[in-house]
């Protein structure tokens, strides 16, 4: 995949002396959904703000679609739609006026039919003549998305888009994101809801204390760092693990009715076959079994805590 955003040796030190970003190099591929994960204050918003032109970088070069974000800022910014983390919209403007203004700012000719589609997709059409101040928090967030989409961007930044929104809106929002991705839009999102990144993202980047710790294909990351747990539900209760059955990663559950076996999916031999044979030989009968995999959240927490 060709890269649509290229970040080279980007760093940011604020006037106060606080270094928000240590030199970062990152490429975003065209058409992907890239999830940027990191704890509060990790530098996610600073990174997005620099790429979008809101914050000036201290060092480094960034290109968007091959256009330098400083020398050729018009072409670079024209490609980007930004949904900020905070709800920021002119309170006394109507929904229609604010999305029309956004389209104008991005030098796009009027296109009421397109704006109508955007508002309908976001269930905002009925509210088009309402002032933003009269809308609920969830509706205001939809307005921010509509504004970001008003100029038909090729890249969409979603900075914590689902923070504090209800389930219905979250579902609508992800439907819109999926449709955008299907139409070829590149999406970069930051989120605290790691299950969303897990469900939506193609690649995951983890940022902590201004440094990109890793960038991986989500599937590779899950495979590499993911551990699986096999739970065996037993027919009879056990008070302790019988002699000869003990093996690394095997524990008896608190109720005594289950055995829990944690194994690494990357190992050539997971030991499951041996375990089942050993149990059978020891006369321990298995009623049912299930496996669960480490979530992206577990991986993320593990990665960040390793570095702190």
């Amino acid at each position: 995949m060709p890269s649509i955003i290229s970040v080279k040796d980007l760093s940011k030190t604020y006037a106060s002396g606080f270094q928000a970003l240590k030199p970062i190099t990152l490429d975003i591929e065209k058409g992907e959904i890239f999830a940027l994960l990191g704890p509060n204050g990790a530098g996610k918003t600073t990174l997005i703000s620099i790429i979008c032109g809101i914050v000036t970088p201290s060092t480094g070069v960034i290109t968007v679609g091959g256009h330098d974000i400083i020398k050729d800022y018009r072409a670079a910014r024209a490609m980007i739609g930004l949904v900020p983390q905070e709800i920021m919209a002119a309170p006394f403007d109507t929904v229609w006026a604010t999305v029309s203004m956004s389209r104008g700012l991005f030098n796009k000719p009027k296109n009421p039919a397109y704006l109508e589609k955007v508002l309908k997709d976001l269930t905002l059409w009925d509210k088009r003549d309402s002032r933003i101040v009269t809308l609920s928090g969830g509706m205001k967030r939809r307005v921010l998305i509509a504004k970001a989409l008003s100029h038909e961007p090729q890249i969409l930044f979603l900075d914590e888009p689902t923070a504090g929104v209800d389930v219905e809106l979250r579902k609508d929002m992800w439907d819109v994101v999926r449709a955008l991705r299907a139409s070829g839009v590149t999406i970069i999102l930051t989120t605290h809801y790691i299950e969303e990144a897990e469900e939506m993202a193609d690649r995951v980047g983890v940022i902590n204390k201004g440094e990109i710790i890793l960038v991986e294909q989500k599937a590779d990351l899950m495979r590499k760092l993911g551990k699986k747990v096999l739970t065996l539900h037993l027919q009879q209760k056990l008070d302790a693990l019988p002699a000869g059955v003990e093996t690394a990663g095997l524990k008896l559950g608190a109720s005594g009715h289950e055995l829990v076996y944690e194994y690494d999916t990357q190992r050539e031999r997971t030991g499951i076959g041996t375990l089942l044979t050993t149990l059978n030989n020891a006369g321990i009968r298995v009623r049912d079994l299930q496996t669960t995999q480490t979530s992206l959240e577990d991986i993320f927490v593990g990665l960040v805590s390793d570095r702190t």
Partner: peptide, 12 residues
């Protein structure tokens, strides 16, 4: 109110 973000991120 923070809406300046849009002016700063637009090709303006």
């Amino acid at each position: 109110i923070g809406t300046i973000y849009e002016l700063l991120s637009a090709p303006v």
